[in-house]
Design a protein around this nucleic acid. Sequence first.
DNA 1: CTTGATGCAAACACTTTGCAACGAC
DNA 2: GTCGTTGCAAAGTGTTTGCATCAAG
Lengths: 148, 148
Amino acid sequence: MGGALLQCDDVHGLIGSLRHSGYKITQARRAVIETLANQARHITAPDLVEAVQERKPGVGRASVYRTLELLTRLGLVQSSTLGSTSAIYFLAPTRYHHHVICTECQKTVEFDECVLRELEQRLGETLGFQFYGHLVEIYGRCSDCLSH
Amino acid sequence: MGGALLQCDDVHGLIGSLRHSGYKITQARRAVIETLANQARHITAPDLVEAVQERKPGVGRASVYRTLELLTRLGLVQSSTLGSTSAIYFLAPTRYHHHVICTECQKTVEFDECVLRELEQRLGETLGFQFYGHLVEIYGRCSDCLSH
DNA sequence: CTTGATGCAAACACTTTGCAACGAC
DNA sequence: GTCGTTGCAAAGTGTTTGCATCAAG
């Protein structure tokens, strides 16, 4: 299927990025990247540890966490918690407002515009879901961090 | 400012929902709800514990976690981790695809459509950000769970 | 060879649970 | 008065760190 090619691209691209930034391409890092690229979907760190060790026994827990930290710092991987270690909670939105987040300094800016209403309606009809909210976060680097 | 009114509405609305569902309105629950409504932004559980205890000393850590679990189950609060206890990680999207998530059975459906490109461009210009990705998750209940 | 990266184990942080006591209704 | 809820403390998970060793470049 098409997925395989994409995964392959992902793996090469990520490894290239690491190498280009001067990081060594180790067995542990390679295994983490391959495993991540293999995921259809989000994965938690503990699940990733398990999956990585299945693919390449002997890789240590800590290396998985360290690789995750590295890839996130380089912007190659994203987490849903803005760098904090635990989940983030927020009131289910009654009015939609979302966040623009600088992944370097964690500065955030709210924006109110919601472009998802129409999409939500359409998806709901197609999939038979009843929706009550959504999370939209846009990641980037702010002007301050860009100028460093 | 307008925020205060909104917060007030939030608090009353949430407490009403709880009461309506037959849950008792306790000091601990009230403190958690007020604190949440007071947040400009996301908050992690540990930070929430601290903030709640500042507002109302004596409230136990466990009650904060239990209230968070309750509110999330009722759809009044959302977390960014889809119910899992730890952060979720994913490759920074090169092609945009997002997820529709049933918060009851955790079933997810991908969709490719991305309506955020234009918004992203506009926001980038306004705010001086350079973006490299975004997270979009739409929460609801799937047809199976709706029919139970 | 050199030095960054690793695996391990111990420390630390976060979350959940059991239970006696309490307080919302 | 009843029973759902609480606070506490202990147990259970998840994450980070120090350090001797290893292996990528």
